[in-house]
Design a protein around this nucleic acid. Structure first.
Lengths: 220, 220
DNA sequence: CCGATATAGTTAACACCGTTAACTAATCGC
DNA sequence: GCGATTAGTTAACGGTGTTAACTATATCGG
């Protein structure tokens, strides 16, 4: 109440305000960043990759295109952040999928189903990372791809355990992991590409593909 | 020699000239069209899909960008023609691959190898059709995709013959064909995408993938 | 042979795009 | 209060696909 407070408290409250102000400012900045990312995700899903533009994104969030460049170096960095963030959930889904099973081969089947399900449920994330902008894998800094690589390591670990059971004549875990990855990736890619693939056909292809590969893998 | 020839021959030679002129004009037009297609293929291979532009193409062949539009409706139609033409060779390679073998399962392995080889040898055709412009499958008139569909029918026929041998417990030829397609497509796509995949790793993945799928398929 | 016509090609423009330098307004720290 | 930082905007540059309007040339009918 007293306008002339002593210096001691004045200084204390000043530093407190300064800290709080910094916090608020940073949280506001984070808020705008999140708004950009959210709008970018929506726009990408609605309009597709080809029609996604910085100008439309800016208009959607009520900012000038230039403002987006305060938060992301360029369009590619923004896109990559959207997609990379999405793939954090991907690794989570894969880890969830193997919780329910104990047999490594059953875990592989569960992984395959989770992989395909994610790809179909997040078509734009999948399309950008593996189809339209596959160059991201070589052009982007390594840590951007870390969520995707971590997901692969989940598969790789299960394949190693499957080989360790002695139920397979295969020995090269890395190669087998790549082959299984190719199978599920191919299923998702074809499902997202071929207009004549309706949901029943897609699940039939996915189940058949997993069955063939896993039977071939388990055979000794 | 006589400048005042009779009307009869004059008319005959006139119609002959007219026909020849038409032929020449059409062949010239075809020549320009082929030049555009050739330059487009080169430019695509050298610069990649993202950097491919009508203006650069026009400059390369010494015409104005507008001229290209006399020969192709738009950029997509041009691109699709380049790629579709490339895939005619694809079907040929697949048919060659099964000539050497008689056992349907051996034919499937040969088909898989030919598929992967083509994808790696014509990365831009493959990228455009299955990755960057996968939308062509739904956007373009059906006959543009005919070469690719014909290639799939080669695979489908062999799978049907493999099932007919009774050496497999599988019954749905179409579903199995899709699954095998997914496998080889996944191999090519990952090979063209992942920077850490060197040639030995790619062939290991391809061989392993085919082996797993075909063993799973043959198992009764 | 000559004039109408079709055809091949060019010029100039439109509406977009990603990106950036230069500016404004407000807030922060002393 | 005042300089410095920060958020945001304006305006522009060079590039894109595409098209309307134009020019020049060759063809065709009389």
């Amino acid at each position: 109440m007293n306008p002339r407070a002593t210096t001691k408290p004045r200084i204390n409250s000043a530093t407190a305000i300064r800290a709080a102000s910094l916090r608020r400012r940073e949280s506001e900045k984070l808020g705008v960043r999140r708004a950009i990312l959210a709008a970018a995700g929506e726009l990408l899903l609605e309009s597709g990759y080809a029609a996604f533009s910085m100008r439309k994104l800016a208009e959607r969030i009520g900012y000038t295109p230039t403002t987006v460049y305060r938060y992301f170096r360029d369009k590619d960095a923004l896109l990559m952040t959207v997609v990379s963030d999405g793939f954090v959930l991907f690794e989570e889904k894969l880890r969830q999928a193997i919780y329910g099973e104990h047999d490594p081969f059953a875990q592989l089947q569960a992984l395959g189903r989770a992989y395909v399900t994610f790809g179909l449920n997040h078509p734009m994330h999948y399309r950008v990372m593996f189809m339209q902008r596959a160059d991201f894998w070589s052009t982007m800094p390594e840590d951007f791809c870390q969520p995707m690589m971590a997901s692969f390591e989940v598969l790789h670990a299960v394949v190693q355990r499957a080989i360790a059971t002695g139920e397979s004549s295969q020995t090269q875990a890395r190669t087998v992991s790549h082959a299984i990855w190719a199978q599920v990736h191919g299923v998702v890619a074809l499902a997202l590409t071929m207009p004549f693939m309706d949901p029943p056909q897609v699940t039939a292809m996915a189940e058949s593909g997993m069955q063939l590969v896993l039977e071939g893998f388990r055979r000794r």
